[in-house]
Amino acid sequence: MPVADTLAAVQARIQRACAISGRAPTAVRLVAVSKLHPAALVAEAAASGQTVFGENYVQELVDKAAQLTCPVEWHMIGHLQSNKVKYLPGIVSMIHTVDRLSLAQEIDRQWRTKLAAPCDILVQVNVSGESTKSGTTRAEALALVQAIAPLPNVRIRGLMTMPPFFDDPESARPYFKELRLLADQIRSAEIPGVEMTELSMGMSGDFEVAIEEGATLVRVGTAIFGER
C-alpha cells in the first residue's frame, strides 16, 4: 500500500481517538518512525504532508537528513550515547530519550558550542521498571528534571515512555496514565524553565489508547512504512 494511503489511515485513527477523548486533533502530533526504512520513503511521506520524523540511530538519522531536500523536522527517539550527541545540533529539533544528567549536560555543551537556540528535550521514564528499557525511574524523575532544569541550552518540554509490549493495547493504558500523572506532579512543582506540555507515548499497536490518556506525540512506524 502506498505510504500516502497508510499515512492517511493513521491520521484518521488519530482523529478518531481524539474525538473519543474529547481532544482537538491538533493536540496530537504524529512522529513517523522511519528506522531502517530508506530516505525515499521519508520523502514520499513528506510529499504526502507528514512533517515530523523520528529515528532511533544517530548515524542513520544523519545520513537520511543529508539525503532529503524537503523541509522536515527530525526527532531523536532512540537510546542516545553521550559521544554521539555532537552529530545532532542543527539536525534534530527534539530529543525524546534523555534519561540521565550526564547526557543532558553533553547536549547542553554541544548546543552551546554549535547553535544559539536551546535543544528541546523529553525526559524518558521507565514506568514499567523493565531492565531491558532505558529511562529514569518514576521515583527519580522529579529529581532528574530539577537537576537538568538549570542547564541553559536544553529546554525540558515533557516526558516520554515505552510500556511493555502487549497484544491487547488496553493493557498498556495504566503505563500511559502513570506517565500523565507523573507529568502533573512535576508540573505542580513549578520548576523554572520546565514545561510539561509534551507526552511522547504510544506506537503502532497502542497509540489510540495513549491519545486517550493524554499523548501529544505518538511514534508510529510499522503502521505507516510496514515491517522492517
Results as ranks from 00 to 15, higher is better:
1 M>S: 13
2 P>L: 10
2 P>V: 05
3 V>G: 11
9 A>V: 02
10 V>G: 08
12 A>N: 11
13 R>M: 02
13 R>K: 15
14 I>H: 00
14 I>L: 12
14 I>M: 02
15 Q>I: 13
16 R>W: 09
17 A>Q: 13
17 A>M: 13
17 A>E: 13
19 A>V: 09
21 S>T: 09
21 S>W: 11
23 R>S: 13
23 R>T: 03
25 P>K: 09
26 T>H: 14
26 T>N: 15
28 V>A: 03
30 L>W: 07
33 V>R: 05
35 K>I: 01
38 P>A: 04
40 A>E: 15
43 A>E: 10
44 E>P: 11
47 A>Y: 05
47 A>D: 14
49 G>V: 07
51 T>M: 12
53 F>N: 08
53 F>C: 13
55 E>M: 14
55 E>Y: 10
56 N>C: 14
60 E>N: 08
61 L>V: 10
61 L>R: 08
62 V>M: 03
62 V>Q: 08
63 D>Q: 14
68 L>Y: 10
69 T>G: 11
71 P>N: 12
73 E>P: 10
74 W>H: 05
74 W>T: 09
75 H>G: 12
77 I>G: 01
78 G>A: 05
79 H>I: 02
82 S>W: 12
82 S>Y: 01
82 S>M: 12
82 S>P: 02
83 N>F: 04
85 V>I: 07
85 V>Y: 09
86 K>R: 15
87 Y>I: 01
88 L>R: 05
90 G>F: 02
91 I>M: 04
95 I>F: 03
96 H>C: 13
96 H>M: 04
96 H>E: 08
99 D>C: 07
100 R>A: 06
100 R>V: 10
103 L>S: 03
106 E>D: 10
107 I>G: 04
107 I>S: 03
108 D>I: 01
110 Q>Y: 09
111 W>H: 09
112 R>T: 14
115 L>G: 00
116 A>D: 13
116 A>N: 14
118 P>H: 12
122 L>I: 04
123 V>S: 04
123 V>C: 04
123 V>K: 04
124 Q>P: 08
126 N>P: 01
126 N>R: 11
127 V>N: 10
128 S>P: 03
128 S>L: 10
129 G>W: 04
129 G>L: 03
130 E>N: 03
132 T>F: 06
136 T>K: 04
136 T>P: 00
140 E>D: 15
143 A>C: 01
143 A>S: 14
144 L>T: 03
145 V>M: 11
151 L>C: 00
151 L>Y: 07
151 L>G: 10
151 L>D: 11
152 P>I: 04
152 P>C: 05
154 V>M: 11
163 P>V: 10
166 F>R: 03
173 R>N: 04
174 P>M: 02
179 L>M: 12
180 R>T: 09
182 L>C: 00
183 A>Y: 01
185 Q>T: 15
186 I>F: 08
188 S>K: 09
191 I>V: 15
193 G>Q: 05
193 G>P: 01
193 G>R: 08
195 E>V: 08
197 T>G: 12
198 E>S: 04
200 S>W: 07
201 M>D: 01
202 G>W: 04
203 M>I: 10
205 G>D: 05
206 D>T: 03
207 F>C: 03
210 A>K: 02
211 I>M: 06
211 I>N: 09
212 E>A: 08
213 E>M: 13
215 A>E: 06
216 T>V: 12
216 T>D: 07
217 L>Q: 01
217 L>D: 01
219 R>E: 00
220 V>I: 15
221 G>A: 00
221 G>R: 06
223 A>E: 09
226 G>A: 10
226 G>W: 09
